[in-house]
């Protein structure tokens, strides 16, 4: 019934109203048109030769479509290594942060104990601490203890996402009814087990949202990677792309450069195409760091 009403409503275009909105349409369409035009051009350039790029004939594909740009970016410019590293960092960090944050958020929202309030405020303060305040001691400590390589970045990404993730999940656990645990306790289920098999699945939507944000955050992270990725073997995509740009002067392979750009932005771009509603709702609903 509701659906039918909607269809009827859609057919009736109120032209007078639309006309009054015209300036708004124009402004938005110009802005988005600009975005679309340059994304399209970048994809076009990634399939063209350097000469076509310089002569300004990118979207005509006069010499055919050059997929070999992707092959050269992937193989000779090390994008495969950067890509694998970023994927590893993002997947492991997203899992690790949930394993730490979900239990903590549950306990903080459910039980009264000494230091509960302090810890909640500590988490909120930690969310606004700028990374310049923490890099130097971490750098000196990890150098002295000889902690480096991929494991260092993974641990950093996990720990640095703990405050925002815990704060986000706190609110969701607080909305769950206590009857779940009471029923579990009556049936003889220990509280820790009740958490993993009953409570955690109940906040699954929140976990999915926060994991999307953590994934985007780790994939796009740049500052920590620039400082702590000490060799090419552990460099993620952001810093890797900077290295490719810096090497451009010597290679001159513009097609390969744009192919690398496309490879780097494609994963989060695709994620966004499928999940934009959820991501947008998460930005305004959850108070996630931007």
């Amino acid at each position: 019934m509701a659906k039918k009403e909607k269809v009827v409503y859609k057919e009736k275009v109120n032209w007078k109203k639309e006309l009054s909105l015209l300036p708004g349409y124009i402004i938005v369409v110009v802005w988005i048109g600009f975005t679309a035009a340059f994304l399209l051009w970048i994809i076009g350039a990634s399939l063209s030769t350097s000469r076509e790029i310089f002569s300004g004939t990118v979207l005509k594909f006069e010499s055919g479509i050059h997929f070999e740009n992707y092959v050269s970016a992937w193989k000779s410019q090390n994008v495969s290594i950067f890509f694998a590293n970023s994927l590893l960092y993002a997947v492991v960090a997203c899992t690790g942060v949930i394993l730490i944050s979900a239990p903590a958020a549950y306990v903080l929202s459910r039980f009264e104990f000494l230091g509960n309030k302090v810890m909640k405020s500590g988490l909120i303060v930690a969310m606004s601490i700028p990374s310049v305040m923490i890099i130097m001691p971490i750098f000196s400590l990890t150098t002295r203890w000889n902690i480096r390589g991929r494991i260092l970045l993974i641990v950093l990404y996990i720990f640095m996402n703990v405050p925002s993730t815990t704060v986000y999940l706190l609110n969701f656990f607080a909305t769950l009814s206590k009857t779940y645990e009471e029923a579990a306790a009556i049936d003889g289920c220990p509280p820790a087990k009740a958490f993993w098999i009953i409570m955690l699945p109940l906040v699954q939507p929140a976990i999915v949202t926060v994991t999307i944000f953590n994934f985007l955050g780790v994939w796009n992270e740049f500052f920590m990677a620039l400082i702590f990725a000490s060799s090419e073997k552990m460099t993620p995509v952001g810093v890797g792309l900077l290295q490719i740009v810096n090497a451009m002067k010597y290679t001159g392979d513009y097609g390969g450069l744009f192919a690398a750009v496309v490879i780097v932005f494609m994963p989060t771009f695709l994620l966004y195409i499928f999940l934009s509603e959820k991501i947008i709702a998460g930005v305004t609903g959850g108070g996630i760091k931007g």
Partner: peptide, 21 residues
């Protein structure tokens, strides 16, 4: 969604597009 898009893709890739194109 289209206006928010630049916030989701890697800022390094975005900056490269601006500088190189």
């Amino acid at each position: 969604a289209a206006i928010y898009l630049p916030n989701v893709i890697s800022a390094v890739a975005l900056a490269t597009m601006w500088i190189q194109y």
